[in-house]
Design a protein around this nucleic acid. Structure first.
Lengths: 214, 214
DNA sequence: TAGATTGTTAATCGATTAACAATC
DNA sequence: TAGATTGTTAATCGATTAACAATC
């Protein structure tokens, strides 16, 4: 399999394509051209064709793209054709919210374990998943073939926990802690920095209304 | 005040600068050069200087940047010098997690009201904030000078609620629903699409480990 | 003053868009 | 076959990086 580096800009757009194709599929649409899709999504048809062609020729000249087929192919590209085993680290409000979010499970992201450093929680269950002490982290990851660790802990402990996860050979960290994690390049990190997002919104709304419409 | 459009790429980096400057300030660092900061943040010094100069000359030749001063200035740019009044729409798990997240309040983002369409919740309080029926939305927004609506509801109702918010002249929507909202350009939308983020992580970790290191 | 480091212009790089030949 | 639409190359646009004169 030959490998060309594909930019994160392209990758970031894939889930959105996937979402729109899923909707079209549910509406019973069989085929769609890049132009039709571009109108729906407010992007250029050119970009859609370019993006998709990084991964293969999924369309057909004179016809367009088969919705069902493209939907399945993008799922494969995104790794949604395989099950992913997750652990949650930090059983606070946000962690529980993620645990209770059904959509992840539907896409093959299965929470296998919950970890917390509060001894009062040990043995309690959320959605039938037991809360365990941090000491069991390493053995649990190995035993349960864990792919992804979800970090919903305060930033103060995040760095240490991330280091520990690296030692456990975790492949990916979904980081909700408000700090940058420095991990080796074979460990993938995806950050969700909620305050950054809120500040961006604050900037955009303040600017817009201070200055008036552009 | 003259206005030049500043790219979202630049804006997206501001909260990160702000975070690092806050840490430096807490460590008692008084001044920092773009080069020192660039090493800490793993970006180029050139980019830091370019980014900051969109908003003014905050540094001094031969000296660098005063940490405290720059920290305050970036806060102003991001609109953190003013209070923002928020409402939460959707009192589910994720909504509650956001309500309980102290950091927002510390930065001036204050939740004033909670709305839900489940009558069983009316009158209940989370963090001393009452849950109200959707019918009161419009009057509440006007009366309490609400800036930002936080949408933590299923996508099926998100579009309708967004339309209603637009009618109420809301300035900004922080959207956690997994759907694109179409609103007029004077309403700012910031999306947090958690499943998109997780899919991106899935892609990156699958790719990396399928193909081997680049 | 000499050294350091910014602010800013110019060069490079990469991503997006346009155009069109290939082909279903 | 003629029409439609892709896949792909070329042109454009914008963002990042490099370089350096200005200046503290």
């Amino acid at each position: 399999m030959e490998y060309k580096e594909i930019s994160q800009a392209v990758i970031s757009r894939l889930p959105r394509y996937y979402r729109y194709l899923g909707e079209l599929k549910d509406e019973g649409v069989e085929r769609i051209s890049s132009q039709e899709l571009s109108k729906k999504m407010h992007v250029t048809a050119s970009q859609i064709r370019q993006d998709l062609n990084h991964f293969g020729g999924f369309g057909q000249q004179g016809y367009g793209y088969n919705v069902e087929y493209l939907y399945v192919e993008i799922a494969k590209i995104l790794g949604l054709d395989k099950e992913h085993h997750l652990i949650l680290i930090g059983a606070g409000n946000l962690g529980q919210a993620l645990l209770n979010y059904n959509n992840f499970e539907r896409r093959g992201f299965i929470f296998k374990g919950i970890f917390d450093h509060n001894p009062k929680l040990y043995g309690l269950k959320i959605r039938d998943i037991e809360i365990r002490p941090m000491e069991e982290l390493s053995s649990f990851i190995k035993k349960n073939d864990i792919d992804i660790a979800v970090l919903t802990i305060p930033k103060i402990s995040a760095v240490t926990v991330a280091e520990k996860l690296v030692e456990c050979n975790i492949k990916a960290i979904w980081n909700f802690a408000h700090i940058d994690l420095n991990v080796p390049e074979n460990v993938q990190v995806e950050n969700v920095h909620l305050s950054d997002s809120l500040m961006k919104l604050s900037y955009n709304s303040s600017r817009y209304h201070d200055i008036g419409k552009k």
